[in-house]
Amino acid sequence: MKAPDFSYFEAQNIEDAIKYKSEDDEAVILAGGQSLLPALNMRLSSPSCLIDISKINNLNEIKIEGDFINIGALATHSDVMNNDLVREKYPCLVDILKMVAHAAIRNKGTHGGSIAYGDPAAELPAFAVAMDAEIVLSGLSGQRIVNAKDFYLGLFETDLKSDEILTAIRYPFLSHNQHLIFDEVCRRHGDYAMAGLMAKVELDQSKINNLDLVYFATGDKPNVAQNTARLVIDNGYDYEKLKKSLASEIDFAGDLNSSSEMKLHLATILINKILNKLER
């Protein structure tokens, strides 16, 4: 379980990293390495070169930019959890990150890495989609911004071009009547979930005005359940109806810990859990 040979480039700035990447299709970006390094050691991937961006200054900054909180790609999960701005403006993100693996992994794993890798079972891609986050991609031709909803294309497939590097994620602030509520069901604490749900709820008094349901660990990417959300707004929680709707909307893919039937069931009851949390 040793990685095959690769060359290594320690980028001092983002321009160098982009240039290097654009010149070598087989090169990959190394940030925290929490997914990449195990894959290398298992010889599941054999890139020509690791472009280490972890030493680039300022790429881990967390700051407010207009109506957004901007999280630099290199901010580790621990950086984000312990950041005062995040704790004040986005307490829900702190709670979500507590469910991401374990402290040692959170100390190395980066926010940008998790968003860019796009593991369908991970919390952050679904969070970004639910929040309508803007994903900042830097390439040879400059910066472009992609909405998280359009970023995830399929299983570990994103809109990131081969000469681009994800440099930041911008989350719009929630308004006073908006809430991001999440829940997940795991076999062990810190594991990838059997099913998880990010729900962005907009309330008018106590009535749900608008609802976004984004699932993780259910299919090939963060799964948005638009029709089901509509049903919840109209009829509230009805297990059988919602289950039927989810089944038609999401192609549930079973894994070692839960079959597709199990995931469908959990996806349904997660709505109830979210609504119960909302009442509290």
Binding site: P38, H102, R187, R188, H189, G190, D191, L256
Partner: peptide, 24 residues
């Protein structure tokens, strides 16, 4: 140790083979 019908072990990593951790 999960095997498929052909005798391939399916979960031969510490991420997939679950042992109890402190939380459990």
């Amino acid at each position: 140790c999960v095997y498929d019908d052909q005798g391939n072990m399916q979960n031969a990593t510490m991420a997939d083979y679950l042992v109890p951790m402190a939380y459990e």
